[in-house]
Design a protein around this nucleic acid. Structure first.
Length: 190
DNA sequence: GATGCGATTCAC
DNA sequence: TGAATCGCATCA
């Protein structure tokens, strides 16, 4: 499958998040199929960092579409996002869960867990499993030889409300592959 | 400076 | 149910 280019992220964040399900993230030897994402929009989305963090707005202004936006959550977990920036809107896509496909032994070492289903079934888990940290914040990872995304064939993509946030909890901007045992949580919506 | 919160995870 | 643990925003 062909590599996903930065231009992929010049559409609106919701479309990017939905269309990323089924794609593959590869990162220095580890690979995983994306089975869960969330969209965050710069405008009209109180849950987006852009709404309450000037630093996030500055990041968006100084970086181009497709760059990595990595931040530490709860002082414990790194969360991996991709910057969306285009004429139809800007925002982020959060990678929430992957189906491990390559480098599984390495992931097991990093996570201290053996079951494949539990290696990358959460946004903090997948960064730990892949060895992604704050040093990748702002990286043009799509252009790097050893990191990036490849297109893939998704199964049935479901929409659900986002997880763990306190604002704009009603927006159905979480996208997951129906029936996947690798997602962080099941679907609440019909 | 001090305070409070958060797109999580895991153990108790 | 609560702790871990820190960057960032806000306020004094």
């Amino acid at each position: 499958m062909e590599r996903i280019q930065p231009s992929f992220f010049t559409r609106d964040p919701v479309s990017c998040a939905r269309d990323l399900v089924g794609a593959t993230l590869f990162w220095h030897g580890c690979e995983g199929r994306i089975v869960e994402t969330e969209a965050y929009a710069e405008i009209g989305d109180p849950a987006c960092h852009a709404s309450f963090r000037p630093a996030a707005r500055a990041f968006m202004a100084s970086h181009s579409a497709g760059t990595a936006y990595v931040y530490l959550n709860y002082g414990v977990h790194w969360l991996f996002n991709i910057l969306v920036k285009g004429p139809q809107g800007a925002g982020f896509v959060l990678l929430r869960a992957l189906e491990p496909t390559c480098g599984i032994e390495r992931m097991i070492e990093r996570r201290g867990v053996r079951e494949t289903r539990h290696l990358c079934s959460g946004p903090g888990k997948l960064t730990r499993a892949f060895g992604i940290e704050g040093s990748s914040h702002g990286a043009c990872f799509l252009k790097d030889q050893s990191t990036g995304l490849r297109r893939g064939v998704p199964g049935r993509v479901l929409a659900d409300t986002r997880i763990g946030i306190t604002r704009a909890t009603e927006l159905p901007w979480r996208f997951l592959e129906g029936g996947s045992p690798h997602i962080s949580r099941g679907c609440r919506l019909v």
